[in-house]
Amino acid sequence: MTTGFFRLVLVALVALFAAYVAEPYLLRLFFSEAEPRAVSVRGDLGGLEINAVEVFAQASPSVVHVFGRAPGAGMLDPRGGGLQSGSGFVWDRAGHVVTNNHVIAGAQEVSVRLADGEIVEAAVVGRAPNVDIAVLRLSRPTRIPPPLPIGASDELVVGQWTYAIGNPFGLDQTLTTGVISALQRTLPTGRGREIADVIQTDAAINPGNSGGPLLDSAARVIGVNTAIFSPSGASAGIGFAVPIDVVNDVVPELIRDGTVPTPGIGVVVGEDAISRRLGIEGVVVLRVVRGSPAEEAGLRGVDMRTGAIGDIILAVDGERVETFADLTRTLGDVEVGESVRLLVLRDGEPREVVVETQDVSARL
């Protein structure tokens, strides 16, 4: 009986081994698909998918690729290399295009590739470096794409869906999605200035997306993608867009006048980091511009012979200022030509100085 049992076990093992060896051959023999497979039927797209498809279909024809050539570079041909590039979108039926100022900064010539592939020259109509916005005008395109509808950034809430369309790394007509991650951020621009109420989104924004639209679920522009926070230089899920309320104020002025008046008083101030190292709580006036309202009001800069500090601005119209960004923000709240009351520290003593603001946009 024991011998019979072992024979059964041996037979079973041999059978299992034979099945193991034969398995791949049997699978190929009976289950290989030598003909095209039947397409599986799926249900309708989900609601979020449908919305993303609709937003892209509505908005993408009006999103453009912007190229600039710096002086000394080769021929301006978007198909070539060595060009600075970004995104933009059609603003009106006259062929104006909105983009970031940094996309075309320093460019001698600008061209735009439309969504249908047509390449047209573009003229720079105006720039607002303090909010990183520029306006171009298309030169005789075959057809002007429809302008994108405009939303309102003061209606936005954290968590609502966002859609970014642009040309990251030169890849035309790219859609990324996300949500509004935060509102009322501040974004530094050049020379210590800041853009207020900036939108933060986790929709992927990469180099080349700059100047493109940030859209809501109704395909309305709610912001202009302008910057990312990323140690690597690629998207890390923290992107920023200039709010459309700011853009909607600035763009008409740029179209009409080519510039946006920026209130200032005519001073060159010290770097915030140096002031902090010196323990100074305020904005140090380095130099007063000749013929400026600051000179007329008697403001003093640093004595270049002795290095003695002149005036330190502590407040504007009663509002405390500790950085250059604070100063530009408070001055930005008044109209050009209006007077402001500065509280300055001079020779260790606080004093009030009244200064009239002037337009300093030409020097930005």
Rank of each mutant, 00 (worst) to 15 (best):
T259M: 08
I238L: 10
S235G: 12
P231C: 04
V284K: 05
S230M: 03
I244A: 12
L286W: 06
V247Q: 05
G270F: 14
I238S: 01
D257M: 04
I238C: 04
P252Y: 06
L254P: 04
I255Q: 11
G233D: 10
I255Y: 07
G266F: 12
A241M: 00
R256P: 11
L254Q: 12
I274W: 15
I274Q: 00
D249W: 01
I265M: 14
D257N: 12
V284D: 03
G258R: 11
V242K: 03
V284W: 09
I265T: 10
S232W: 04
S235E: 03
G282E: 08
D272P: 15
P261R: 04
E253I: 00
F229K: 02
N248Y: 00
T262M: 02
A273N: 12
E281Y: 02
E281N: 06
P261K: 02
G266T: 07
A236F: 06
G237Q: 02
V267P: 11
G266P: 01
P263W: 06
N248W: 00
E281R: 04
A241W: 06
V251D: 06
I228Y: 00
V284Q: 05
V251H: 04
R256L: 13
G237C: 02
A241L: 07
D249M: 08
I244S: 05
V250T: 08
F229V: 15
F229Y: 12
V284G: 01
V242Q: 10
V267R: 00
R277D: 11
P261A: 13
R277E: 12
G266A: 03
G233L: 01
V251F: 09
A236K: 00
